[in-house]
């Protein structure tokens, strides 16, 4: 492809290598021609849907265009090539994600590393919530890591803005294991608290190095969640029984502090406090991103690790183009 700063969008980027393909899109690795910056191009397949474009692509473009934050993935450009009519999203290239790192047992997480990742996630989500955007699909797999160690929230395919108060929202969002209890009950008017729950579960997963609440199916998820955290009642969560799917629950007692301490043996008391307030069953009492960031967990020693010093999975060769294929971006 030819160089040139201005000119048609395609000549500003190169598509070097295909790194992944999903139902809705193909992901290529490429470069921004004028500064050699690595990028990922997500080419959305058109013609698959009778209504035109895939909803998640529209959502991704819509919200990423608005959000600019160090802990949110950057949408550099959007273009369509005249010959194919496909929609192309140019995103910054991020070689790793948190899920791979959690699964890689040869990497040891220090408490300060976990703190740093949680801090960056909270900063990113705080920026979204500040702009009244719900992410609705937070999971380790969607928290990507830049070569400098910065964590970036990605995949805004399920994101949406807080609607009008009377609008219904679908409760069928968020990957099952990270789904908040109000969503399990089929709530249609949830708020930012659903994202905070997911972050709480991710926090637990970072400490345990294994998924915290792995439900086998939607019903099992309810059981697993309440076995770990207690069944909500009208006392600790007023009006819960008015949610559509709240019925015939097996009643589990809430876990005692000691049980939690045994489960998270490496966590300090402050860390447990934060975890408890993030995984508070009642969404009205669950802590917000602002409250979480102001929590004393972050000021307590040890200080969060600097992003550049965080553990990485594989040291992706700086200039060489032969990154591991497993390092490809997430499924699309």
């Amino acid at each position: 492809m030819t160089t040139g700063n201005s000119g048609s969008p395609i000549s500003r980027y190169t598509k070097d290598r295909k790194v992944g393909e999903g139902t809705y899109a193909v992901v290529y690795l490429g470069k921004q021609v004028n500064n050699d910056r690595k990028i990922a191009i997500k080419e959305i397949k058109t013609g698959l849907f009778k209504d035109g474009l895939d909803m998640s692509a529209i959502r991704e473009v819509k919200y990423l265009q608005e959000l600019h934050h160090i802990n949110v993935i950057e949408l550099i450009d959007v273009f369509t090539a005249h010959n194919t009519n496909n929609l192309n999203l140019v995103l910054e290239f991020l070689p790793g994600d948190l899920e791979v790192l959690i699964k890689n047992t040869s990497v040891v997480f220090k408490p300060s590393d976990i703190k740093s990742w949680l801090l960056m996630t909270l900063r990113g989500i705080h920026h979204c919530h500040r702009n009244f955007i719900l992410h609705r699909d937070l999971k380790p797999n969607n928290l990507l890591l830049s070569p400098t160690g910065e964590l970036k929230i990605a995949d805004f395919g399920l994101a949406r803005a807080m609607g009008n108060p009377n609008e219904d929202l679908t409760s069928n969002v968020v990957t099952r294991w990270y789904r908040a209890p109000e969503l399990l009950f089929g709530a249609k008017h949830y708020v930012e608290a659903v994202d905070m729950w997911s972050i709480g579960i991710i926090f637990a997963e970072l400490m345990l190095r294994t998924p915290y609440l792995p439900g086998k199916d939607d019903l099992d998820q309810v059981d697993v969640t309440f076995r770990a955290l207690g069944t909500p009642t009208e006392q600790n969560w007023p009006n819960v029984s008015n949610l559509p799917l709240y019925n015939a629950l097996k009643v589990y007692p809430p876990p005692s502090r000691q049980e939690l301490r045994n489960r998270f043996s490496a966590a300090t008391d402050t860390a447990l406090n934060l975890l408890c307030s993030l995984t508070e069953l009642n969404p009205g009492k669950r802590c917000t991103s602002t409250q979480a960031l102001l929590h004393e967990y972050f000021t307590e020693s040890p200080a969060p690790t600097l992003p550049s010093e965080l553990p990485k999975n594989d040291v992706a060769g700086g200039d060489s183009d032969d990154d591991e294929p497993e390092n490809k971006r997430r499924k699309v």
């Binding site: 108060p165 009377n166 709530a187 008017h189 009006n239 008015n242 969404p283």
Partner: peptide, 20 residues
Amino acid sequence: LAKNKEFLGAGWRLELVFER
């Protein structure tokens, strides 16, 4: 809407609407 118990149970608050 703030009297609707289903709204309240899902964490919806009147103040959030005004604040936003």
